[in-house]
């Protein structure tokens, strides 16, 4: 899934393009709405921004399966078991699709998927802040589908017209599936909201816990907050259209009325819609904490990476066996 995460410590200096002519032709193409393909010429900072965006998106899909995975075997009814299995399978599928797109972009640098996995494990490749958070109750399974996937839909539909063709096409399919995920999540939430006291209690408790992470989801509104911002380059190169803050506002406009209509609250007494300014006023989440989280210092960062690491190490013999001698069947 998910929105571009900025950590504030990896400033790539805007690369001065040698070949001005190629660069201008490239800009003319994307401004005319043409799509760039994997083998086309592209500026180095465009390629690097895409690699970072897409590998982070892909790996977040995969790491995003882990918090939900906790609830797959535990889903409380047969219908819920089938629903959450289908959803998490989709997420793994998104990861697969996106890593392939990233792999093509990395070819000129001689990097592969193995490198991405190693980057993830050694902390060079970040995954999205929401997936560093713990899940405590079944309500979290609903909250992830409803609001995390809901936030993902907002940020991904913003890139449905992205200038890079392979990513743009992958997003069409991903966004279609995300709509089902949000419905799946909403259905879990509705059952809890209409349920007994205990169910409503775990629902509200879950929303309280997820709220700051959901605000952080879209990233800081400007470079000042965390020290750097890639949103400008993403917009200039027509990868996405809106700023972080615009996306967050769209999220609040879509979901806060629904939250309130279910009789739920958010842990922010100051939150309100300002008619004059035409925007939501809300308490900023702790951006210092955000920086820590995406540096793998979040509440569950270590455990989730550990699971990934075990899977990677523990299956090494299988990957080696597959590389040995493929049998003809």
């Amino acid at each position: 899934m998910y929105n571009y995460v900025e950590d504030g410590d990896s400033k790539t200096s805007a690369y001065m393009e040698q070949d001005q002519e190629k660069y201008e032709a490239f800009m003319t193409r994307i401004e005319a709405g043409e799509k760039i393909e994997a083998d086309d010429w592209m500026p180095a900072d465009y390629r690097q921004a895409l690699i970072k965006l897409i590998s982070m998106h892909g790996i977040s899909e995969i790491m995003g399966a882990l918090p939900e995975k906790e609830w797959v075997p535990k889903a409380p009814t047969l219908k819920r078991k089938l629903g959450i299995m289908a959803k998490v399978q989709d997420e793994m599928g998104h990861g697969q699709l996106l890593l392939r797109v990233a792999e093509d972009l990395m070819k000129p640098y001689g990097k592969t998927r193995e490198d991405l996995m190693e980057d993830l494990l050694n902390g060079d490749l970040k995954f999205h802040n929401v997936f560093h958070m713990p899940t405590k109750t079944w309500a979290d399974a609903g909250m992830v589908g409803w609001l995390v996937d809901g936030a993902a839909i907002i940020s991904q539909t913003n890139m449905l017209d992205a200038s890079y063709g392979p990513y743009q096409r992958a997003l069409q399919r991903i966004c279609q599936e995300e709509v089902f995920h949000a419905q799946h999540g909403e259905s879990i939430i509705m059952a809890l909201a209409e349920g007994n006291d205990y169910q409503r209690e775990i629902l509200q408790e879950s929303l309280n816990r997820w709220w700051p992470a959901l605000l952080m989801f879209f990233g800081p509104s400007s470079a000042e907050t965390t020290g750097s911002s890639k949103q400008d380059i993403m917009i200039n190169y027509k990868i996405r259209k809106s700023t972080n803050e615009e996306l967050r506002q769209a999220f609040l406009s879509k979901y806060l009325p629904r939250v309130f209509s279910l009789g739920l609250t958010v842990p922010d007494e100051t939150v309100r819609y300002d008619e004059k300014e035409e925007k939501w006023i809300y308490k900023q989440p702790d951006w210092e904490e955000f920086k820590q989280i995406i540096r793998n210092k979040g509440p569950r960062s270590k455990e989730r990476l550990r699971v990934r690491e075990i899977a990677y190490e523990n299956n090494r013999w299988v990957r080696q066996a597959l590389a040995t001698d493929p049998v003809s069947v």
Binding site: M85, V88, M92, L99, V307, R308, I310, A311, N315, R319
Partner: peptide
């Protein structure tokens, strides 16, 4: 099988096995 989710030898297998 559902306990295996996210732990298969590679991502393609995770998708297939979970299906």
């Amino acid at each position: 099988g559902s306990e295996w989710l996210g732990l298969a030898p590679h991502i393609e297998e995770d998708v297939a096995y979970s299906s």
